[in-house]
Each structure stands twice: as structure tokens, then as C-alpha cells.
Amino acid sequence: MLRGICLEVPPGALVRIEGGNGGGKSTLLRLVAGIDAPTEGRVGGRPPRTAYVPERFPVALPLTALSYLTHLGRVHGLGRAEAARRAAHWLDRFGAAGHARTPMAELSKGTSQKVAVVQALLAGPDLLVLDEAWTGLDARARSELDLAVAERTAAGAAVVFVDHDPARLAGVSDAHYRVEGTGLAPVAPVAPVVPAVAPGSRVRIRAAAAPGSVLPPGLSGRPGPDGAVVLTVDAARSDEVLRTLLGARPPWHVRTVEELP
């Protein structure tokens, strides 16, 4: 339940909503998207072209992906040929063109999610509401969605989103709110972290993994026979390298990090 919420989403704004599980994030997004009406108060000024991506879309509809998307494009107000053309274009952008003729009931979870994202994007909505839309997408589709969100906001559309990954679109959000109790509190924008390192300084990272492991792509270095590796990188890049090492599957164990004189 949410109470006494006042949220303004100006055109072209990217708004992030966060909060705990079951805290009312999805309820708020459904109100913003116009799927539900509030019991009290009102939501006004919603642009005519609004699109929503649910968190889960494993939908057993008796239609193929392309046919569903064409129908939804027409519901969004597009003509038949235009809807089919854009559906094919967006499926291709998300790497799901091969599934255009697959019945919706036979799609994998990830491909279903791509169809959900495509139905929202194909009409070029002026308000895009994403409820953890990235969940279940592969890495390429996730970055494609990041790009599509940037395109929409650049075109003057408002985007409101929830995502469990705090790094999602971090730094480009215009506003950030947190659902707390029954209310909504603005989250102060995090000042961009200015690297507190002198240009040109370097950092040495010692890390180890099981013998025979290879470094994650993007890092250059040769692990020794015991699986240990020493990487010397620009200090400005060291955080990124550490993230890559720790985020690798299986993760690398970071032994030491030292700044070189």
C-alpha cells in the first residue's frame, strides 16, 4: 500500500525507483503506466502513447511472436504494415529475429522477455515503464535495452524504471526515488566519483584462480602455472579491472592491490 505520494515525471526524464521486495515498487509502476487506478488521488498528464514491460512475461498466447507484436503495435496505434515492420526490426535488434514465427508458448523465458521489451519499444512510446525489464535478458540484449532507453529519453520520452542492479543506468538517471514504508523519498544523487588519483599513476593487482584459469576477456596478462597473476593497470581503470575479476565466473580471488610509486 502506498499513501501520499507525489511524483512528477517530466518529458525526457529517466527516473529510477528502488525499494525492498514487496515494498510497492511494482504497484507504483502500475499506477504510473495506468494499468491500475489509485484508490484515492489521481495520476494525470500521461501521454497517449504509454508502454509497460512487466518483470516476467512467460506468456502462453496462441499467437506467434511476430503476430502478437503486430497486434500490440496496432493497439498502440500503428498501421498493420508499419507494426509488422517495426516488430521485425526490434526483434532483430534484440537478437530474436529467428523466433519471429515461433508460437509464444514455445519461447524460452529470455526470448519471451525480449518480446515483452519489443512490444513496449516498437511504437516509440512517450512514457516507458520498465519493471525489472532487464531480468532474464542476455548480456547483449541488456545493453541493447540500455541503448534503447537512452534513445527514448533523447527523443523526449520519459522512462520510469525499477531494477535490482544498482549499477543499471547509474549516472544517467535524472531522478532517483526510494519506496519507504508507504511513501516515496527522493534519493540524493550520488556525486560522480572523481578519481582521487594523479594522472599517470598505476596500480598493481595480484589475483589468483584455480590453476589453468584464463583471464576474463578485456584483461591482458598471463596467469602463472599456480593460477596467480599480476596485473599492472592505470589507477583510473583499477576499479573496473577489480569488478571484472570479481564478477568473472568462477570469480578471481584478489590478493593484494597496491599503488605503484
Binding site: R30, G34, I35, D36, R49, Y52, F57, V59, H76
Partner: peptide, 16 residues
């Protein structure tokens, strides 16, 4: 006939 998630998408597009 329409699963909830699909209905939500249509409702956002055209109104519930």
C-alpha cells in the same frame, strides 16, 4: 483468455 502480464502490456497501451 489473456495472461496477466500480456493484459498489463495491453492495458498500458490502450487503458484497462
Amino acid at each position: 483468455n489473456e495472461p496477466g502480464a500480456a493484459r498489463d502490456c495491453a492495458a498500458a497501451a490502450a487503458g484497462p
